[in-house]
Write a protein that binds this DNA or RNA. Structure first.
Lengths: 148, 148
DNA sequence: TATATTTGGATCGTATACGATATAATCTTA
DNA sequence: TAAGATTATATCGTATACGATCCAAATATA
């Protein structure tokens, strides 16, 4: 005999992870018209956010901040290099390390990007208090899994 | 002259969309050991959640619920078909439509999946009240963009 | 009813994600 | 100091995402 209650939690509307997945994709799509003007994808933009704050980081140092490994980052970084936004160069003191140095073009893109956060917030159209509450809950979830 | 304040919002720690992106990927990874036992990826699991509730939907009807288009769904559905979990068959009344019919194996996978939601909740380790608050905020964000 | 438009899927190309593995450089330590 | 372990990055294979486009079927409409 089938006990219907066991399957309540399998309904899409009762999933919590599905809206997380859908919202993440939604936001990436909201970014896109803004990032198109810089010729960037969203993950590329994230890498530049990190480097604008900390130029010269290595691949894994960027990866630690974005929770990404070299199998994802290496091709992405090569594309940014081909676009002339950064240089990848082996450290002379430890040739295992690849340091990521912004070019003048990569650095100057920061000025064009300065308006993006407010524009994205307007596009997302979530009240500031709710955006902050959402951010806090997401960060609590992330902090529970530090092995990332 | 450079006004530092303009760039505050470009810092990674001030991004709200980055934790959304990172949390979505985290949760997908939390699902993975559970879904491995069913031989499913997370998006494949989402498709089955929909079909377990509404067997026989068309490609776009599933896509409407998951916010995915045929360019993503068609290859995914072909993989589910190859695994013997569903059949794709053209509607006889409207040959544009492809109906998705679960096979007995696809249907019976529901029983094995019944334990996944509670296991995932345990793995995520977010208190139920916060999980519900997070779900509500995400759904509010999603509802503001119905064109999806 | 013949043509134009719309609709539903499929295909193609590019860019992530990510597990598994490879490789070279560095470090450990017997 | 030579062999083994570790580290940092790269490579490979598979599976999404998604914009753009194609194609056939259905609908609308002149």
């Amino acid at each position: 005999m089938e006990t219907t209650e066991n399957y309540e939690q399998l309904k899409l509307e009762n999933q919590i992870c599905f809206p997380l997945y859908a919202a993440s994709r939604l936001v990436t799509r909201l970014y896109q018209p803004l990032l198109d003007e810089l010729g960037l994808t969203y993950p590329q933009y994230l890498v530049l956010l990190v480097l604008w704050e900390h130029n010269g980081l290595t691949v894994n140092q960027v990866g630690d901040r974005l929770h990404l490994h070299s199998n994802t980052l290496t091709p992405l970084l090569k594309r940014l290099e081909q676009q002339g936004l950064l240089q990848r160069r082996r450290s002379t003191t430890d040739e295992r390390l690849v340091q990521l140095m912004l070019t003048p073009e990569g650095n100057s893109l920061k000025k064009k990007a300065a308006c993006i956060p407010s524009q994205l917030a307007a596009a997302a159209d979530l009240p500031p208090d709710k955006a902050l509450a959402l951010k806090a809950l997401l960060e609590e979830l992330l902090q529970k899994h530090p092995s990332w």
